[in-house]
Each structure stands twice: as C-alpha cells, then as structure tokens.
Amino acid sequence: MASQGTKRSYEQMETDGERQNATEIRASVGKMIGGIGRFYIQMCTELKLSDYEGRLIQNSLTIERMVLSAFDERRNKYLEEHPSAGKDPKKTGGPIYRRVNGKWMRELILYDKEEIRRIWRQANNGDDATAGLTHMMIWHSNLNDATYQRTRALVRTGMDPRMCSLMQGSTLPRRSGAAGAAVKGVGTMVMELVRMIKRGINDRNFWRGENGRKTRIAYERMCNILKGKFQTAAQKAMMDQVRESRNPGNAEFEDLTFLARSALILRGSVAHKSCLPACVYGPAVASGYDFEREGYSLVGIDPFRLLQNSQVYSLIRPNENPAHKSQLVWMACHSAAFEDLRVLSFIKGTKVLPRGKLSTRGVQIASNENMETMESSTLELRSRYWAIRTRSGGNTNQQRASAGQISIQPTFSVQRNLPFDRTTIMAAFNGNTEGRTSDMRTEIIRMMESARPEDVSFQGRGVFELSDEKAASPIVPSFDMSNEGSYFFGDNAEEYDN
C-alpha cells in the first residue's frame, strides 16, 4: 500500500469516517454492505422474486439502478423543472426478469421514488447511507470498465484509444464523492478537466460571474484530485501550473494530454476495490451473516471469500459463452479491467482472455432483445487465490505491452514486471518541450526514458491461498515475461453508450 500519510484510507472515504482504527473501519464497511443486503432482500420480497430470480444479476442491476435514481437529487430536480413526455419524475423502474413456464419473461416495473427511498433508509437504520449508494455506483463503473473500451470518449477529448488503461471510473457520476474520486484513473480526471476547458473556450461566460466562481472551485478541486494521483514531483508541479492558470485554454489542454500520456509509464495511484452486485450481499445477509459484527474490507480476502460461497446467475444470449460472461463479471467484481492478464489468470486459476476474444456482450439486456431465446446460467466467480488490492500504480518500471492497449494499471499487489510499449508511448511525445512547463516536461520525458521494462514492481508481494486469511504465506508467482498482458488488445469491444 502506498503510505497513507495525511490521506484517509478508502474504507474511511467509503464510510465518510473520520480517523478510525482498522477494526472500526471493518465494522463501518460491514455496516454499509449489510445495509445493501437488507435493502436487496426487501426489494425481492416487494417484487415477489423467487430465490433464483433474486440471484439473477440482471435483476440486481435494475434494483441497484432504481435506488441510485431515487437518490439522484440533481436529476430529480431537473426532471421536475423540465417535464418530458412519458417520463414521470417521481417514478423509477426498469426490467425485471421472471421464469414463467420454463421461459424467461421481461416485466417492466415502476415504483415511486419516495417508496424506494423509504425501503433503502429502513434497511440502513434510517440513514441515507450515501456510502452504500456510492458502492453500487463503483460496481456499475467497474462493470462498464470491463465491458467497454471507451474509444470515442478518448478520441473526443484528444487522447489515444490505446490509453484505455487510464480510464478507470470514466462512467462514474460526478456525485460519487471521495470514494469515487479515489477509483478514477488519470485519464478519467484528464477527460473531465478537458471537457471543462473546452467549454470555457467555447463559452465566454463559463468562468464568469457567480456560476463561474463555482465552476472555478470545481476545476481547482479536480486538479488537486489529479495532482494527488501522480507520484513524481515534476508531474505534480505541472498540475500546479494547470490549476493556477488564470484562464484555462489550449496550453492547459496540451499540458493535460501530455500528463495523461506520461501516466502510461509514470503511473498514478488509483484505488481498486472489489464492489459486488447487491444480489451477492442480499443472500449472505439472508443466511444470517452479520457483516457489521464480522467486519468487512473491500481490499482484502473478504470479497473473494464471499464470491467463493455465492451463487449468481445471468441471462445468456443464444451465441454467448457462459464462461466468457463469467470472466467479464469476475473482472468487474475485482475492479480488474486494466490489470495484467498474466496476473489475473494466476489468481483466477483459469486463463483470462483479452476482451476481443470473449464471445459475450454486456450483462444488460436491451429492451428490444428477444426473450424467447434467452437461457440462463451460473456465473463462475470463484478464484484459485486471493491478493491484496493496490492503491498505487506500482513502481515506475515497465515491460512490453500489446498493440491495442499500451500499458496497464495494476489492481493487485503482486510481484511482476509491468508491461508497456515504450516505443509507441515515446513516439507520441513530439519533443515539444517549450513553453512555461518546459523544464517539467524535459524531466518527465527523462524519467520515462530511463524506466526499464525488466524491473520488478511490488517486490516480494504474492497471492494467498483462500485458507490464508491473515495473509501469512505469500506465494510469489513467476510470469512468462514475453507473454501478452493487455485486456483490450487489438480490440473490438462495443462502445459504451450512456
């Protein structure tokens, strides 16, 4: 783990906690998980779902989305002020799938948001429990990260689609708070800032007046979040320049895209947490497990152990491969979309394939898809080993990566060399080191050039047997250095459309 220093740990961010010791953190995270579980059980009762239907990941996603929508204050306010045809701002819903006479049927349900809020609060001892809501947002974000390569979004903001390893959390809503900021990748933060800068260039009043003052505060806050992700002084200094700019424009845009590229080699610290679907927490609570009393951590053995003992089902389209669908969801559960496939294969105990080789589309089923041909199958979400999630980018030494994705962002704290394609990355730096950030740029390029592919990161860190909950005997895996390590390699994943 990167030293926490003055930073709060993510469990504290996750639970809005002030400084807590490890036991208190485990208890408050457990409380959050228990609340999600209780809410899910109650919703299944309301909807009269069978046990099997309640364990269907598509039903879980609909129920999670309903509660997130019920608590989305800004959108609710907007919907009330701008009524649109056929949208009731006070209601929320989605597809629920039921097994009827041996076939899967889709039923569109509609609930009062007020009623959903009441059920959620009741499951969370009367609190709004925003930490639990954020947790579900991060699960949705991790699922998107594993399912889609955001080529269009990258290109629109002047970045290269091969930089997708920097895009963790790119679909997280803005209201996801400190826990959300911690899991956002460098590219995601750059993209958010670039969008602001572009608006400022096109709209003279963007930075002016009372609204402009708020915009400015948001801009500086985002700059500080991004600065905190960088691990070298030169990158941090460049972020200070971007933040202090009187009138952010093209120079800042250039600096930010430069920094994003540099992060492929001088990786930023991005938190990883295993956020599971509500249909995993519900049955665990129903079986009598007391998360608050037992304590829970999002970055240790607990999620692995929970998945070892969970039964989750998914709808499967006619030509999809259930094992591939399982891999997709497994990666999402562990926030591992940008991790090295060699490491993932070792931990999972079966070969993890790149996205383009998977015969599976996303987990969600569109409303126009034919239910007649839908089957369902068990998702295999178990693992051979477990490993500690990392909050750091690993040290800054790398190795060759593949054509589709030119770097990785480690999820697990496991000893290995970190793949990246130096030639491709360095070719993108057209040696432009003039301007006010020239000395920093020169320094950053120097550090990137001296990074050695064969150097090892996370020295001495290994994986653990599932029986080793105290992480007492690390097993340090050895990897084939020459092997392909990137998930979005030469990829044809669908595009994420909101």
Results as ranks from 00 to 15, higher is better:
residue 419 P to Q: 10
residue 146 A to E: 08
residue 141 S to I: 00
residue 39 F to Y: 11
residue 207 W to Y: 09
residue 119 I to C: 05
residue 481 M to W: 11
residue 192 E to F: 06
residue 77 K to Q: 11
residue 326 S to Q: 04
residue 319 N to R: 14
residue 476 V to A: 14
residue 47 L to I: 15
residue 31 K to S: 07
residue 493 A to M: 09
residue 339 E to A: 04
residue 106 R to W: 07
residue 181 A to D: 12
residue 360 T to P: 04
residue 361 R to V: 02
residue 497 D to H: 10
residue 199 R to D: 06
residue 486 S to C: 12
residue 155 V to Y: 05
residue 170 S to Q: 09
residue 129 A to D: 06
residue 334 H to R: 05
residue 28 S to Y: 14
residue 223 C to I: 10
residue 77 K to E: 08
residue 157 T to H: 03
residue 452 R to V: 08
residue 478 S to K: 12
residue 9 S to W: 00
residue 477 P to F: 02
residue 79 L to T: 10
residue 101 N to E: 03
residue 217 I to D: 08
residue 450 S to R: 13
residue 449 E to S: 11
residue 262 S to E: 06
residue 57 I to K: 04
residue 104 W to I: 12
residue 393 G to T: 04
residue 395 N to T: 15
residue 234 A to T: 15
residue 442 T to E: 02
residue 221 R to M: 09
residue 378 T to V: 01
residue 407 S to M: 04
residue 313 Y to F: 13
residue 292 E to A: 05
residue 471 A to N: 04
residue 382 R to W: 10
residue 492 N to L: 01
residue 442 T to F: 06
residue 496 Y to W: 11
residue 58 Q to H: 10
residue 231 Q to V: 04
residue 176 S to K: 02
residue 401 A to E: 14
residue 196 M to F: 06
residue 152 R to S: 07
residue 157 T to I: 08
residue 214 K to P: 10
residue 324 H to D: 11
residue 229 K to H: 08
residue 350 T to Y: 06
residue 319 N to I: 01
residue 282 G to S: 15
residue 406 I to D: 00
residue 469 E to N: 13
residue 279 C to I: 01
residue 152 R to D: 03
residue 133 L to I: 08
residue 248 P to R: 05
residue 336 A to P: 07
residue 50 S to A: 14
residue 89 P to K: 03
residue 165 S to G: 08
residue 489 F to W: 08
residue 436 R to N: 06
residue 100 V to W: 07
residue 89 P to S: 08
residue 31 K to N: 09
residue 146 A to T: 15
residue 461 R to I: 02
residue 75 R to A: 04
residue 142 N to E: 02
residue 428 A to H: 13
residue 230 F to G: 04
residue 171 T to M: 02
residue 64 E to R: 05
residue 274 S to L: 00
residue 20 Q to T: 09
residue 111 Y to C: 12
residue 204 R to D: 01
residue 136 M to A: 01
residue 26 R to H: 06
residue 185 G to E: 11
residue 403 A to M: 13
residue 76 N to K: 12
residue 209 G to V: 07
